[in-house]
Design a protein around this nucleic acid. Structure first.
Length: 271
DNA sequence: CAACGGACCTGCCTGC
DNA sequence: TGCAGGCAGGTCCGTT
């Protein structure tokens, strides 16, 4: 489910409800996530005031006075704001964070690929420290992508999905951005020109921004903090559309597998 | 260092 | 109708 637009949609959804709130309780029903939920999480979060809700790559950062709650939604995670009376937890409702105003932030994750971490104020975190730049970072340029890609034989699709290069480009939006830029996903990253990396970065920003504006992409089950689906799936040009006509040239959209991930492209207008 | 495959999970859809 | 098999939006880690 969650790629960067879905995480950003979630951030915007919970932000007004949790900012300025004080944590009065934490309930962990299932600690076996991607990494075990730290047993001390309750103690660390207790009485903390949430100051801001930020996003770094696909991580949500709930900044508190003495540290930061780091949250990843994995493949199937979601967060919802619950208001009193708080409904009984359903299957896969793994964590509740209770606030002074009676509301509850509920973390749900069927596949349990998500995770929760805590880092003390002023400190980094191993999962965040090695991440590449944000796609919307004005300092990121097509030249940088071009330079980093020289000599690389892996597919350009894998290259832009590598979080050490640029964060936040997941499987859906990688196919979509490469389509917009007219680049064949299988092409070796080291054999894509500077001009095309400039176009590709523009395309990445364009597709991510459009998806954020639409409230994210709902394929199966993505819902935002209020339980609403996203609508970007209606705008997908190639993802999931194998056998359909390419919206640009009318040729048949093809599907292949790159690094074990489904990949969609037009073999006529992507080269 | 780069590249690749495996691993972690459940749910849903397809086809027999 | 039931069930096995394949596939799914992420990403870390170990091996080559």
């Amino acid at each position: 489910m969650p790629e960067l637009p879905e995480v950003e949609t979630t951030r915007r959804g919970i932000q007004p409800h949790v900012t300025g709130q004080r944590v009065v309780g934490v309930v962990v029903r299932e600690s076996r996530l991607r990494w075990p939920v730290p047993p001390e999480l309750d103690a660390w979060l207790a009485r903390q005031l949430i100051t801001t809700v930020e996003r770094r790559a696909k991580y949500l950062l709930l900044r508190c006075q003495s540290g930061t709650l780091i949250l990843h939604l994995g493949m199937s995670g979601s967060l919802r704001i619950m208001q009193p009376p708080i409904a009984d937890p359903a299957r896969h409702d793994h964590v509740d964070i209770l606030f002074g105003n009676g509301n509850c932030l509920r973390y749900t994750d069927p596949r349990r690929f998500g995770s929760l971490h805590w880092t003390p104020a002023g400190r980094g975190h191993p999962l965040l420290d090695t991440l590449g730049p944000e796609p919307f970072d004005p300092g990121l340029t097509g030249e940088q992508l071009y330079r980093l890609s020289r000599g690389r034989k892996a597919a350009v699709k894998s290259f832009i999905m590598d979080a050490h290069i640029v964060v936040g480009v997941g499987n859906i939006y990688a196919s979509e951005a490469l389509f917009l830029a007219g680049i064949r996903p299988q092409r070796a990253a080291g054999r894509v020109s500077l001009a095309r990396y400039r176009r590709l970065l523009i395309a990445i920003r364009q597709v991510l921004q459009a998806a954020i504006d639409a409230g994210g992409t709902t394929l199966r089950d993505f819902v935002d903090a209020g339980g609403q689906p996203g609508y970007f799936s209606q705008q997908l040009r190639v993802y999931g559309r194998a056998g359909h006509a390419c919206p640009r040239c009318g040729a048949v959209v093809r599907q292949s597998v790159i690094a074990q991930r489904a990949t969609y492209f037009c073999s006529s207008c992507q080269r």
